[in-house]
Amino acid sequence: MPPHARARVAGDKHPNRRPGTARRTGGLQHDNTRHTTRFTVVGNHLAQHGELSLLAIGLGVHLQSLPKGAPADIKTLAARFPEGATRIAAALRELEAHGYLRRERVRTPTGRIVTRTISCNQPAAARHRAPAVGEEPPRPAAREESTPHRPPREKRAPRKPLPAVPSPAYPAPALLEAATGLLAGLHRRDPRLLLSACDTAHLVPGVAAWLERDVAPAAVRRALTADLPPEGVRRPAALLAHRLAAQLPPPPPFRASAAAPPPVRHPWQDCDGCDRAFRAPRPGRCRDCRPDSQEAA
Rank of each mutant, 00 (worst) to 15 (best):
A178V: 02
L224A: 06
E177M: 06
A223D: 11
W210L: 05
R221F: 00
S196G: 15
A256E: 11
F254Y: 13
L248R: 14
Q247H: 14
G185W: 01
H187I: 02
R221N: 08
D199H: 13
G206L: 01
D199T: 04
A246Y: 06
L239R: 13
A226T: 13
A208Y: 04
A226I: 09
P251Y: 00
L239W: 02
A201D: 13
R243I: 10
L244S: 09
P230L: 09
A184V: 07
D214T: 12
R188K: 14
A238R: 15
G185V: 03
A223M: 15
A226R: 14
L182Y: 07
W210M: 08
L183I: 12
L228A: 10
E231G: 13
G185N: 15
G206K: 01
W210C: 03
T180S: 10
L183V: 10
E177A: 15
G185Y: 02
A226S: 11
A218T: 13
A184F: 03
S257M: 13
P205L: 03
A237V: 06
P253T: 10
P253C: 11
D190P: 03
P217L: 09
L203D: 01
D190R: 06
P253E: 02
A241I: 05
D214S: 13
L186V: 12
A223N: 12
R213Q: 11
G206W: 00
P229C: 07
A208F: 06
R234N: 11
R192I: 00
G181N: 12
A246I: 06
L240S: 07
F254T: 14
A245R: 15
R221Q: 15
V204Q: 10
A241P: 07
P251M: 02
P217D: 07
S196M: 03
S257K: 14
L175G: 07
S196Y: 02
A241E: 03
H202M: 06
A178N: 11
A256R: 14
L244W: 09
P236V: 07
V204M: 04
C198N: 13
A226C: 09
L211Y: 04
A197E: 15
L248M: 15
S257G: 13
R234C: 01
V215M: 11
A216I: 04
P252L: 08
R221W: 00
R213I: 09
H202F: 06
C198H: 12
H242N: 09
T225P: 06
G232W: 07
L244I: 08
L183D: 05
F254W: 12
L240I: 09
G232S: 08
A223C: 13
A208T: 08
G185A: 15
L175V: 07
R192D: 02
